[in-house]
Design a protein around this nucleic acid. Sequence first.
DNA 1: GTCTATAGGCTGATAGAC
DNA 2: GTCTATCAGCCTATAGAC
Lengths: 218, 218
Amino acid sequence: MTLNKVTEAGIGARNKVNILAAAEKVFAQNGLKGTSVQQIADQAGIPKTNVLYYFKSKQELYLAVLKQTLSLWNSRFDLATAQDDPAETLAEYIAEKMEMSRTHPTASKIFALEIINGAPNLNRYFDEEHAQWMRGRVAIINAWIAQGKMSNVDPHYLLFHIWSSTQHYADFSAQVTRLRGSKMKKADFENATSHLISTILSGCGLTVPAQYRAASNG
Amino acid sequence: MTLNKVTEAGIGARNKVNILAAAEKVFAQNGLKGTSVQQIADQAGIPKTNVLYYFKSKQELYLAVLKQTLSLWNSRFDLATAQDDPAETLAEYIAEKMEMSRTHPTASKIFALEIINGAPNLNRYFDEEHAQWMRGRVAIINAWIAQGKMSNVDPHYLLFHIWSSTQHYADFSAQVTRLRGSKMKKADFENATSHLISTILSGCGLTVPAQYRAASNG
DNA sequence: GTCTATAGGCTGATAGAC
DNA sequence: GTCTATCAGCCTATAGAC
């Protein structure tokens, strides 16, 4: 009985994971409305009814994918304080965001599609966790400015700047690849990361920490 | 007869413009697959059949909207030369892009959705006009670097940086509005533009031209 | 837990009256 | 040029056999 339950839970868990992975891939191309349950089933290699057995509706599955996406957003910047070094903290945050774009591009795309659509499924998230996170980061950046650690930049525009320039390499990968002539490899991401850290920190009147300096710059 | 033709052409032209405007608005929310002809008709205030009378298919209407979008992309940067001043040229380009995000956010969103979808309808554009434009701009930036007018940054990453950070204010307006607590007004766009010009030019080792300096900075 | 069958609705697109 | 009526096909979701 217990063994049976465990086995069932094992099968169910594996199937859910499989469906979630397939759904993430397909939702990242055409969003909630533009994606059919049939497409997700085909991607997962199972009949359509099985998808709706594990998730009551397309909407519920989408929300599960979206929630999974948000759980990846965690960063060391979440725990930063006014005592930390802004150059170190911001450089690390930019590097983390670029690593996310490289390793989880579909998660970034799903988030982008949801926001372009007007973020109808993120009302709670925006008004609660996200707004709170924002207030906390803004306060820390303002504290750094007050301490004379960095120049007087609007924290909101700084954070939007970091998000947009890093997520671009995930969301707009089709354009980036076409215009560069080849897919971004790990080394290309490292160069792009160095460019962004160098530029954004420079805009804040900060010096790039040694470990984030591009190798080619000596 | 001639009068009749002119009148008909007038009606047809007006209806096409009306449908294109409605389609742009709706496509900008859910993309090609996620949008129905019925939605476009409702937005335009006409029956569905009338939409398909002026545009043979949803796909054809979408391509018309996309083409209209691309025609807005023109910039003074298109005509820049190696003799121009990089600080002036880049500052103006960033300002132009931000003004586009402010005045034509739906156009930016349609482009974003198309690229996130893998840009299936932009193959020609990417491989021809866009790639040619890119090669030309990269050559000019490299010439500026060779002349010692600016620091040695990768032109590709610089252009991606400008596009992403400016288009963000159109594509992610839902998030920007929620986290700021209010919609971006013209003055907010001017502040964001100053932030971006100051940061990106600083990253290129350039001084911000007087007319692009923020008023509050003295 | 997995499948077939099917309901009921919306889709893109067309035919033909006016 | 505008409309109603309609088609075949796909959609989400469910019922029920196995």
